[in-house]
């Protein structure tokens, strides 16, 4: 070691310090006025996930004072979008919608061959909960969830239950239900809510598992009966429907949607984004728009949202092998 090396060290330290200053300056002036934030949505335009994201994007624009542009990158249940955000620059200008449990499944299921890991993402905040429900036809003999479970115990694998797709939130909810109650159902996978609901109304299947948003119309027309909602609180859109917790079954499920950034995004920027989401969700405009679509607002800040991720990781890890039987 000599003077030269000390100079080198000093130069390096100086450089590091300058970069940090630059980064924090960047963070303090985030977002820059003319630079648009890209919000990647891994679902097709017009769907409920996309609609909720666009509403929030509009709200965030007003709070942050800069454009928030939605970029749809549908495919592989969001995997394409998640890959894109994982590989983006962690400067806060690229964020993505993230849907749990979907994103966690893509991370933990080796068959999905995801190009990212859990650590590649920085959770920002939770926006909306589309709680899971179990519904039967209005003229079905099952009046409560207990009726359904009793029959399932008496006739294992004979009661058919639909999902909106393989390894969706509904699928995992059914697996959890089976675990919690010691029952076995015949699980039938459809492509989306439409075909599954048709099958229920056509009496081709016994019970429908999906989200609150799927059943609004049929509940209103009196065609179906919702046996319970998989949340800690009752849904404002389903009057009179009890939670499963209240009925003695600790079942929580559905689609929990929030936003993520690439790992390494500076904390100040993440906090700013999280605060912007919170403020946007409290505006009348956003509240009304989401209400109209049957989307239930639930905000979780970075810390709580990260904890949610961890709990989902554990749940999904356990259930993936079960989902493949």
């Amino acid at each position: 070691m000599g003077i030269l090396s000390i100079r080198k060290c000093a130069a390096i330290l100086m450089a590091v310090y300058l970069v940090e200053v630059a980064a924090s300056v960047g963070a303090q002036t985030f977002p820059a006025k003319n630079k648009a934030i890209t919000m990647i949505v891994g679902f097709s335009a017009g769907g409920s996930s996309d609609a909720g994201a666009r509403i929030l994007a509009g709200g965030m624009e007003k709070v942050l004072g800069t454009k928030v542009e939605v970029l749809n990158k549908p495919g592989a249940s969001g995997q394409l979008a998640y890959t894109m955000v994982a590989q983006a620059k962690p400067d806060g200008y690229t964020i993505s919608l993230a849907s749990l449990p979907g994103i966690m499944v893509s991370i933990m299921d080796p068959d999905r061959k995801a190009a990212y890991k859990k650590d590649d993402f920085q959770p920002i905040a939770l926006q909306v909960v589309d709680a899971g429900v179990i519904a039967v036809k209005a003229d079905s003999p099952y009046r409560t969830i207990k009726d359904l479970l009793d029959d399932a115990k008496a006739r294992p694998k004979k009661i058919t239950m639909s999902t909106t797709g393989l390894q969706t939130g509904d699928h995992f909810s059914i697996l959890q239900l089976q675990q919690l109650t010691g029952t076995q159902f015949a699980i039938v996978h459809f492509d989306g809510a439409g075909t599954a609901m048709t099958a229920l109304l056509g009496k081709k299947i016994n019970a429908y598992v999906g989200n609150v948003g799927d059943v609004l119309s049929q509940l209103k027309s009196g065609d179906i009966r919702v046996l319970g909602v998989m949340d800690t609180e009752e849904s404002p859109f389903l009057p009179g429907v009890k939670t499963f917790e209240a009925q003695g079954i600790n079942l929580l499920g559905g689609s929990w949607r929030g936003y993520i950034a690439p790992a390494g995004t500076p904390k100040e920027i993440v906090d700013k984004l999280s605060a912007a989401i919170k403020t946007a969700l409290e505006t009348e405009e956003v509240k009304r728009a989401m209400d109209k679509l049957g989307l239930q607002i639930r905000y979780m800040d970075t810390e709580d949202y990260t904890k949610l991720w961890d709990s989902y990781e554990m749940m999904v890890k356990e259930l993936i092998p079960l989902s493949k039987q």
Partner: peptide
């Protein structure tokens, strides 16, 4: 008649109903 979208395109239309505060269905 059922409040069910028969195809992805109709599902988008259904979203439009919802955004206008209307739930499509027989009622």
């Amino acid at each position: 008649t059922l409040g069910i979208p028969a195809s992805p395109t109709v599902a988008v239309l259904m979203g439009a109903f919802l955004m206008n505060g209307l739930i499509p269905g027989p009622f």
